[in-house]
Structure formats: structure tokens, C-alpha cells
Design a protein around this nucleic acid. Structure first.
Length: 357
DNA sequence: AATACTCGCAACCGCAGCAGG
DNA sequence: ACCTGCTGCGGTTGCGAGTAT
């Protein structure tokens, strides 16, 4: 408070970066790492404030950034994570390797938000707008539980992100590793810091606990029953309600038909033809080696394929048990159970140094 | 062809949280 | 315990490119 922003210094340049400036910044970071952002501009011979340099680096120059159009999987992941986490772009970005929080934020604001709104879905709550009047029934209670879980997850993500930051500050070596063009370098760093969180009692893989909790709720006294939010007073039964709410949320989300039907239906059709989660979750060829996020997204997508039975055409049924059309609530919960168990299996099987977990 | 309008992205701004002194 | 400085996050803005009139 009262401290003037660094960019207020006279003589500091603002606005778009020139190729020369980019080159200077890149060269400096590759050689020395960023170290203190505050000190970097003078050392690198740039007439910019440290903040501007950091932004340019993280949003544009970093070698592990993927640019260009977002894939359908990425879109789905963003929508679903946004439903969980809200506008926590950095947290969402941790689940989308090679995408920056800024890019995700922009994409959300310019594309996804509008699309949801157009479909009559509140981009904030991810619920149909005419559903806003939902009162104190089970659903809103579930939503509250869901929100509680999301907050918990957010806290974990933040803690983990902090550790990553700390490790990056350790010195030029780690920073230059990050700048060497290898996402793996950063990933392993991330994993090593994350592993600190894997100690018993410590915060663990982002999402994992939420998934376990949900799964535990879905399967009653099942696999995740022992897991409880450190901050939570929710019973596993309550979490179970949250789980149902989450699945409901995902099912009613635009990615489950309307949206994708409207745009890129063909791609969507292709995507929903992904293999059954259970199949790859138990497939040793798939599980440990791959990118978890990719598979998680695939899982979401393939689960969404089942959601199509809720769409107008009521057509395809996904789950081998598809016989019986809407399946009834029994199948519904069975599906959810399988769904989360599949994720759990995958998570449990994924290596502890997975880039994401 | 000229102008107005819209869209998307890069960058900025202000705030909050954290760590070190 | 308090203060100060640094970093990162989320919201917002400005500008260039593309499209419509």
C-alpha cells in the first residue's frame, strides 16, 4: 500500500514487446535464469519493469507453451475445471500443460463463456439459468458440498503451486532447466516438489483427494471412504451427494451435447468414440506411461458419450449396460461409481512423478 | 474502397499473500 | 509482531486484425 508500482518509474517502456526485447529477455533467462524479476531488467539491459518481463516470459516466451487453437478436450477440461474451481485460472492451468493461465482466461472470456451463455447456461454456476431458482432441496445442498470440495482442492493447488515457485527460486540452474525448452524439465521439477506433498499426511496430488472423496461417496463405504477433507466436516454420505451433483453438473454442461452439437459435431462424434475408461484404466499399456490430464480428459469425454443418452435424440447408450435407455437411478449411480473408480485406478497407477500428480 | 464494428489477444493494473529482515 | 519488498493472480483495457456495411 502506498508503494508505487514498479512500472511507474520514469523511462520504463510499456506496451507491446519488440523482437529485440524478446531476444534480450530470452537470452538472459537462458543463461542466468530469471532469478529476481525485479533485478532482471537492468541486468538484461531492458527498459522494462520486472513485472512486465515476468509476464512476457510466462505468457509468451516460455519454451513449453503451446499456442494456437484449443482442442475439444482442452475446452472440456476448462469447462469442467471451471465448474469446479471457478475463476482460478492458475489452478486450471496446472491441469492443462503448455497452456498459460492468461490464455485460458482469455479463451474462457472470449469463447466459452459466450457459448455457455448462448445456450442458456450460467457461465458462473454452470447451471441452466432457469435453474437459478432452485431452492433448498437436495440439489442445492449438493452444490454446496461440491463447492466445499472445490475450495479444498483450490487450496491444495495453491499450496502446490507455491512449492513450484519456491523450487524455481532456488537458483539459475533450475530456472535455466525450465527455460531449456523442455517441459519435462519443469515437469520433473514440479514432480519433485510435488513429491514433498506426497508424504503421509501432506497434501497430495491435486484432484486426487477430491476424486477419492467423491468416489468414496459414490461407492458408499467404498474405496475412498477413509479420505476426508482436512477442513471438511462432511460425512462421506454428504460427499456422495456432492459427487452426484458433480456428475449432474457435468452432464448438464454444454460439453455434453448441445454445445458440441452446435459446433464441431463431427469432431465431437469422433471424440465420444473414445474407448471405455475402464478399458484403459485397467490396461497396463495405457495407465502409467501417459499424460494423466490427457487421459483424464479422455475419460471425461468418454463419459460424456454416455451423457448423450440424456440429449434430445436419446440415442446412443455408452455404458455397456446401455440397454434400458435411461438406465434408471441404479445404473446412474453404478455409472458414477465406475466413472470415479476408473479415475482412481488411473490416479493410483500413475507414477508419483507424473507431471501432473 | 472506405468506414464502422466486432473480436481476440497481449499486456497492464491493482490487490493479496508470503517470506525475510 | 511488525514492516517491507517481491511475486503471482485475476480483472480489465487497448490495440490490431478481420468482417460487415
Amino acid at each position: 500500500m502506498g508503494r508505487s508500482p514498479c512500472c511507474d518509474k520514469i523511462g520504463l517502456k510499456k506496451g507491446p514487446w519488440t523482437p529485440e526485447e524478446d531476444q534480450k529477455l530470452l537470452a538472459y533467462i537462458e543463461e542466468h535464469g530469471h532469478g529476481s524479476w525485479r533485478a532482471l531488467p537492468t541486468k538484461a539491459g531492458l527498459q522494462r519493469c520486472g513485472k512486465s518481463c515476468r509476464l512476457r516470459w510466462t505468457n509468451y516466451l516460455r519454451p513449453d507453451i503451446k499456442r494456437g487453437k484449443f482442442s475439444l478436450q482442452e475446452e472440456q477440461t476448462i469447462i469442467q475445471l471451471h465448474a469446479l474451481l471457478g475463476n482460478r485460472w492458475s489452478a486450471i492451468a496446472t491441469h492443462l500443460p503448455k497452456r498459460t493461465d492468461n490464455e485460458i482466461k482469455n479463451y474462457w472470456n472470449t469463447h466459452l463463456k459466450k457459448r455457455l451463455a448462448k445456450m442458456g447456461i450460467d457461465p458462473v454456476t454452470h447451471k441452466p439459468k432457469n435453474d437459478a431458482l432452485l431452492s433448498s432441496d437436495g440439489q442445492s445442498k449438493s452444490a454446496a458440498n461440491l463447492s466445499h470440495m472445490a475450495q479444498w482442492e483450490s487450496a491444495r493447488l495453491e499450496a502446490e503451486a507455491r512449492l513450484v515457485r519456491q523450487s524455481k527460486l532456488r537458483g539459475p540452474a533450475s530456472a535455466s532447466a525450465a527455460s531449456s525448452g523442455s517441459f519435462q524439465a519443469q515437469s520433473s521439477e514440479f514432480a519433485s516438489t510435488s513429491s514433498q506433498l506426497h508424504k503421509p499426511g501432506g497434501a497430495a496430488r491435486p484432484c486426487l483427494d477430491v476424486l477419492k472423496a467423491w468416489s468414496g461417496g459414490v461407492s458408499a463405504a467404498g474405496v475412498g471412504g477413509e479420505l476426508e477433507s482436512p477442513t471438511s466436516t462432511l460425512s462421506s454420505a454428504a460427499v456422495g451427494e456432492g459427487s452426484a451433483a458433480f456428475v449432474e453438473l457435468v452432464r448438464s454442461s454444454p460439453c455434453d451435447g448441445g454445445l458440441m452439437k452446435e459446433e464441431g459435431e463431427e469432431e465431437w462424434k469422433h471424440l465420444v468414440a473414445l474407448p471405455e475408461p475402464a478399458a484403459w484404466a485397467s490396461d497396463s499399456e495405457h495407465v502409467p506411461s501417459g499424460n494423466f490430464v490427457e487421459k483424464f480428459t479422455d475419460l471425461l469425454l468418454s463419459t460424456s458419450s454416455g451423457d448423450r443418452r440424456f440429449s434430445d435424440d436419446g440415442g446412443e447408450s455408452d455404458n455397456g449396460s446401455g440397454s434400458g435407455g435411461d438406465g434408471g437411478s441404479g445404473d446412474y449411480y453404478e455409472d458414477n461409481k465406475n466413472y470415479w473408480n476408473s479415475i482412481l485406478n488411473l490416479v493410483n497407477a500413475s507414477p508419483s512423478d507424473s507431471p501432473i500428480f
